[in-house]
Design a protein around this nucleic acid. Sequence first.
DNA 1: GGCAACAAAAATGTCAACAATCTTGTTCGC
DNA 2: GCGAACAAGATTGTTGACATTTTTGTTGCC
Lengths: 216, 216
Amino acid sequence: MPYVDGPISGEQAKQHALTGLREAIARGEMAPAQRLVEGELAERFGVTRGSIRAALIDLTAEGLVERIHNRGARVRVVSVEEAVAITECRMVLEGLCAAKAAAQATDEQLSELAALGQAMVKAVADGEPLTYSALNHELHAYIRDISGQQVAVELLQRLNAQLVRHRFQLALRPGRPQKSLNEHLALIEAIRAHDPEAAQVAVHAHLASVIDALRE
Amino acid sequence: MPYVDGPISGEQAKQHALTGLREAIARGEMAPAQRLVEGELAERFGVTRGSIRAALIDLTAEGLVERIHNRGARVRVVSVEEAVAITECRMVLEGLCAAKAAAQATDEQLSELAALGQAMVKAVADGEPLTYSALNHELHAYIRDISGQQVAVELLQRLNAQLVRHRFQLALRPGRPQKSLNEHLALIEAIRAHDPEAAQVAVHAHLASVIDALRE
DNA sequence: GGCAACAAAAATGTCAACAATCTTGTTCGC
DNA sequence: GCGAACAAGATTGTTGACATTTTTGTTGCC
């Protein structure tokens, strides 16, 4: 009996295609505005065209993909102007999460935060911007986690997914990690001091600086 | 030639079903947790089952509907706890919009705001909570409009759609319109004074009061 | 050579039948 | 009478073929 299975399908297949596509877009494999042909993607992921189509519809709702009637799907390009608007929203939503995190973080979570902060210091000292960027992302995610504000967390995940390209571009800018590091350390300190007000201010300051950097 | 057209279909049909369903949910025609049977809805709206299915998928992404595999779609029920979390997010996002609106509103827009405020005063004086609720909604939408913050506006529309049931319940509570009115007038004044800080504070105060009311 | 009309190919959109799954009602054994 | 197994009906999920539309390539005319 030959092991030539046809394309898998069903819910599992759609999920596979969805995560695969999302990651491919995130790591920049798909150039912006590149056409996403259903047939090609179906073959590449070994699923049916229907699964790919369903995944593309989901990604459209997430704002990562743009679909035009009878003209297929493309990777959506996020202009600098829009990236700024998105970051403004992140500013207030992450401010909310940081304030909540500061109010209710446990001692265990606080020491985890401190550890993250030290790892970031080390990454900058070692001159490893990619490691730093990953830790950066992890820190923000952890703070969201602590906040327990499920609604804000979901909104932020959507918004962040749309910024992958800009985030990447920003991380490699010389001098940027050092500035960002100080802002993050201030944020960590505010949370460790259980000071919601200061945490919110720190987030605002940090993301205001990100907005400046976005605009070059 | 008989005028018995079958169910219409295509993009137009899906849009028709989508808006129809959204409005039906908004006006509470569909009880919470009620099953949404694809076949019934298809007949009701005169479209094919495929169009209904597509619309339900979209509404799921919008958070208005819940779909379980092989078990169909239901109107999603938003718990009080979740309504509070949603309102917290509204607080910061509408605060952002109000601040922007205060910074950049034109004279024409300011007088439109004043007119809205006076209409609200009249609605409360006349004891018409439904009119007031509609004006309330209109005011918030107009401020979002002035802000020009497209990203925040879209997020807020999503969030607001999920609150229809709670909003309705809140509007009919005795004494609530009077309190709400004062908060709105303060917000309008702050924007008219081109004071972003005060506008943001007014929004926060207003929605904090909404959260208190939600919790009863 | 350039352009418009046309033809071929590719890609997306749509549908109707079929398959899989869940729900409900009934029967049988205890 | 009660519960479990079973069968019938209802509902959703999936597929593959087909229709529509866009795109590409070609031809013929000026």
